[in-house]
Design a protein around this nucleic acid. Structure first.
Length: 513
RNA sequence: GUCCCGGUCGUCUAGUCCGGCCUAGGACCUCAGAUUUUCAUUCUGGUAACACGGGUUCGAAUCCCGUCCGGGAUACCA
């Protein structure tokens, strides 16, 4: 190991939001740093001035925070190895470039883009395989150089690649790989305006920030070769590299806007639990164990090894992500569920329900905890709790399936009128044991409180259907339709309990007419 | 074109390094059943894979070679 403490980084360029792939890269670096007891830092690669924006940076940082990926050094955090924005480190690149120039590892290139293109075409015509920059400026005489300067040409700084050196490298994920440097260009390190290009800035900073491990997408594999050479030229030891496969869509193509939300914050805003998204992303190329795939961040850190990342590409599966979300939602306590769902309920639930009728609301929402995976699905389901619902098609059908059902409803309305059904929200429900946490504690006994519990209501209802001479199974469907306007949802007696006497009676009578 | 990497159920993967414990395990999806007042949850069970062809070996998903397919790279983007 190069440095005593492992130091890892995530180095996004703020040219767009934090997407799935970036989130995974950040996560693996983060997890490795935490697992190794090292430092995780953020470095902002903002050298693409045309595309970098402040807004993107904010979105990236928010996305990371949302996923629970925290950094020890970087933006809004500081640290001893800053600055952490590349545009604030230009002098460091200039220095390194001068050194490389002086030591003969780099040279000035005066070629115009057009000239480079012409050179490339010529090499291509040779059909010798590799085609790139023809290295014309490598061997410029001082006269030629002076002539270019007189023409007002401003030089790039190019790195001198070895002609045909076989690089034997070890990649933490790919293992032993050999690459011949003849496949590589003399690449540009520094532009005339002093702004560095990716490979150069990356290495100068990895040295400066004492990075020990680099986990990044496989599109950087060849960059890794260029970078190793640069580390060597600069007399520094290079970090351990791990190049991981990309995330693909279900067709095996590059993930696009059509396949998944490209912005992590979209998942947040739709109500995907962050823990679930984190958990799911972790699984894209890494396995917790042979027989478990639900785990906490801490458990991941405990089990994570860079070498354990898979070599084959993985496809993003929305269905499994959705399942994972449900898995997390169901494990929250009812109180937690209310609290976490609240932002998505602003329009669907009256504020008073959260404050003066919190216990009642908690009961009501608890009924949906196993029926919802993504929080934005909730609002559309709970309307019947607060306002007389419109009847959907399936419910309307259930209402008329049996010609006698309207009579049942009318009779049941009368029956409930004289019953111990709890009062309706938002009327005073004092004395009602609203803390039964439906639907998990249906067995609370009727004797325990002044008003009926769901199980007591059911008991009574079964008896009632008998006196009515109707099969219980037939009876419940029209009642559910009348009360909720749909044919799905919580247990019917939870519905009655939550709605209370006045509302139930009113809706039954309305449906009976 | 050239170079690099990969290929286990439809999907994510375990197993591959150190061949036998793999008649290939788990999860999602799907199907069937159970529970049930609906939906959902839960439970039980089923379908489903070592890309193909050659080797090596007593024995190969695991090692070797070839083929095919997929991905990545080949910038004054990162």
């Amino acid at each position: 190991m190069i440095h005593s403490t492992p130091r890892l980084r995530f180095a996004p360029s703020p040219t767009g939001p934090l997407h799935l792939g970036g989130a995974r890269t950040a996560m693996y670096n983060w997890a490795a740093a935490r697992a190794l007891g090292g430092t995780f830092l953020l470095r902002i690669e903002d050298t693409d001035q045309a595309r970098s924006t402040e807004a993107s940076l904010r979105i990236i940082l928010a996305g990371l925070r949302w996923l629970g990926i925290d950094w020890d050094e970087g933006p809004e955090q500081g640290g001893d190895y800053g600055p952490y924005f590349q545009m604030q480190r230009l002098h460091l690149y200039r220095e390194a470039a001068d050194r490389l120039l002086a030591e003969g590892h780099a040279y000035l290139c005066y070629c115009t883009p057009e000239e480079i293109e012409v050179g490339r075409k010529e090499l291509e015509a040779l059909k010798a395989g590799f085609s790139g920059y023809n290295r014309r400026c490598r061997s410029l005489s001082s006269e030629q150089r002076a002539a270019f300067e007189r023409d007002g040409r401003k030089p790039n700084v190019r790195f001198k690649m070895p002609d045909a050196r076989v690089m034997q490298v070890h990649d933490l994920v790919r293992g032993h790989v050999e690459v011949n440097t003849k496949e590589l260009d003399d690449w540009v390190m520094l532009r005339p305006d002093g702004v560095p290009l990716y490979n150069f800035a990356c290495v100068v900073d990895d040295i400066g920030m004492q990075i020990t491990h680099v986990v990044r997408g496989e599109e950087h594999f060849l960059n890794g070769i260029k970078q190793r050479l640069l580390f060597e030229a600069l007399g520094a030891e290079c970090p351990l590299y791990a190049h991981i496969p990309l995330i693909l869509n279900m067709e095996g193509k590059k993930l696009s806007k059509r396949d998944a939300d490209t912005n992590m914050l979209d998942y947040r805003d739709k109500g995907f639990p962050a823990e679930a998204v984190f958990n799911y992303i972790a699984l894209l190329g890494w396995g917790f164990s042979g027989d478990r795939d639900v785990f906490t961040r801490a458990e991941m850190v405990g089990a994570f090894k860079i070498e354990g990342i898979g070599k084959s590409g993985s496809k993003f599966d929305e269905e499994k992500l959705r399942w994972m979300c449900g898995e997390y939602v169901r494990h929250w306590t009812p109180a937690e569920f209310v609290q976490r769902a609240r932002p998505w309920l602003a329009d669907a639930v009256p504020t008073a329900a959260f404050t003066t009728h919190a216990a009642w609301l908690q009961n009501a929402l608890a009924c949906y905890q196993e029926r919802v995976a993504i929080l934005n699905e909730l609002a559309a389901k709970v309307g019947w709790l607060f306002a007389d619902p419109a009847m959907d098609e399936a419910a309307a059908k259930n209402l008329v399936k049996d010609p006698a059902s309207k009579q049942w409803l009318a009779a049941y309305a009368e029956h409930l009128q004289n019953s111990n059904l709890p009062p309706s929200w938002p009327a005073d429900r004092q004395g009602v044991d609203d803390v039964v946490h439906l639907p998990t504690k249906k067995d609370a006994t009727a004797a325990a409180c002044a008003f009926w519990t769901p199980s007591a209501i059911e008991h009574d209802c079964r008896a009632f259907t008998e006196t009515l001479g109707v099969k219980f199974g037939h009876f419940v469907h029209p009642v559910r339709a009348a009360l909720t306007g749909t044919d799905k949802g919580p247990g019917l007696f939870d519905v009655l309990f939550l709605l209370g006497k006045d509302t139930c009676v009113r809706r039954l009578r309305t449906a009976a007419t």
